[in-house]
Nucleic acid binder design. Sequence first.
RNA 1: GCUGUUGUAGCUCAGUGGUAGAGCACCUCCUUGGUAAGGAGGAGGUCGGCGGUUCAAUCCCGCUCAACAGCUCCA
Length: 648
Amino acid sequence: MIKITLPDGSVREFEKGTTSMQVALSISEGLARNVLAAKVNNEVVDANKAITEDSRLSLLTWNDDEGKNTLWHSSAHLLAEALEALYPEVKFWVGPPLENGFYYDVDLNGQTLSPADFEKIEAKMLELARQNNEFKRTDISKADAIKYFTDKGDSYKLDLLERLEDGNISLYTQGNFTDLCRGPHIPNTGFIKAAKVLSIAGAYWKGDEKNKMLTRIYGITFPKDKELKEYLVLLEEAKKRDHRKLGKEMELFTFSEKVGMGLPLWLPKGAMLRERLIQFLQKAQLKAGYLPVATPHIALKDLYVCSGHYEKYGADSFQPIKTPHEGEEFFLKPMNCPHHCEIYKSSPKSYKDLPVRYAEFGTVYRYEQKGELHGLTRVRGFTQDDAHLFVRPDQVKEEFLKVIDLVLYVFNALGFKDYTAQVSLRDPDNKTKYIGSDENWALAEQAIIDSAAEKGLKTVVETGEAAFYGPKLDFMVKDAIGRKWQLGTIQVDYNLPERFELEYTGSDNLKHRPVMIHRAPFGSLERFIAVLIEHCGGNFPLWLSPDQFAILPISEKYNDYAKKVSELLNISDIRGLVDDRNEKIGKKIRDNEVNKIPFMLVVGEKEEADGTVAVREHGKGDIGTMTIEGFSKLVQSTIDNDFKTKQI
RNA sequence: GCUGUUGUAGCUCAGUGGUAGAGCACCUCCUUGGUAAGGAGGAGGUCGGCGGUUCAAUCCCGCUCAACAGCUCCA
């Protein structure tokens, strides 16, 4: 008998050689129907693998990421089986699971696939799935594996085999398809109830452009048909929220071939949104003791040689700007920090001055590769909400806590409710590749971990992911439709203080080196606004909305009154427009509704006589008539409500 | 940078080897209308750029530029 410990801590006894599936059956049949794989002592294995010793066991279902991965990995095999049935010439490379679905890289031997063929493949996959074919594992010697794939003519698999050790090679077979695979897999194909081929794309064999281009077929599957439908709705929704599409429709920003790719042009409405975000953060930063600074867009090469950016990015960056003066070279600034270091150095600092917090909305330029550019999320010129805190080593934690507060304040005000802190620490087995003293690293890492814990942040620790210059904390944000984005970042830096020989005089009257903390709650305004647009689908919080109202006169007779109302609201710092077009009210309502204007104020004979406005809220319709002051209060209370979160 | 797809009016898109069309937006006029599209007329394009084939190219071919998707997830 062996002892199996379940996740709830309970221990049960089973015969040696029992499978996870049998354990599941002993608990309930319903559970067994949902078991996709099992985790035995932290190793994910087939649910029908025999357990031979005392073990901890978790049964993995669709609700576990590992369960999903297993189903999708098996689905890749199912896709391969379907492809082989439909196109006998096909040769296979690899088919891993992804975060959302899976792909298989195949050589179609000259055949081409088009979206028109997708349905045929999906139908075949489901037909094969319904056969409930078991995923059978066969452990095999290397020689036999080579023989099998040589006979089959699968040259790509032979290439994989070359790098595998004998004695550690397995095949999985379902139905008529056998693949080289370490597993694990779901018990049988019947668990796959819905399948969708999503797209095809070229992908070089082994990711090397010198190699042959294979066809990568992306797909996704689900254990329930309903979930596929929900997923497709989500894809549609994501398409509707695409910030590139909404940005164009809402006249927020544009790109011009003449200006250059990756260089966004902010249109008046988008610039208004930007300004509001900047003012919002500036106000919060002033309260938190930041000092605004401003620095130019270019600097001499020497600055970046000193900071190390020249060595690291010089060749891949924009080329230097020459001057008539022989040998003089300027660079577009790729980061604000070197400038801020020089500001720090402009006067001697005492330990009593620290922490010093320099903040700047600094526009930086980076030569991103062509293929990397994407809307506002990857651009070549962007504005960081940058600040650098120069602190004593013993102040790292306190400052970290304050920065976390500021970041959470920002997320709250913008409606991001779901976020995770990702803490990146150094690799303990390879401490030499990092700059800075051992005890300072230990201090900072502990400070970050403690700060995150103190603030009650959901935290994921990534060991070995720290930059060479310091540990960091990144905020991963989930948007309204469940997609993850990396936004704010807080990074400790031991490198730049060293390179710039930054100092402060301590209470001991000796020179000490400060620690630098880089932090940006938005990251960059461009990227942040892109995420914000997709998060709220263009329906910005009222305080950010470029036009907060549109006044719609019933006829031209009331245009003057409309303008008067608009001016009055402007005085209360509420901004909007007067729709004085020669159109009927229905048309005006439709157009402004489509334009996502938060409030529409209909004015006609009655309103002019009473000094009122008839208010319509976006997405809700008529909410009644009120005085201008009443509307002004409504706006104010709506905005206050957006901020009704903890203040810093 | 590499591969593929795309590029026609401000926007969304149709179309053809004989130099172009729709809807929306825009302008003018009629209409002055009370909660999601009133009517009529008009203006607007070197069909991304360069070159080639052809009597003739927006359409075919080559190059180029840009946008989009993918190129990292190694059984």
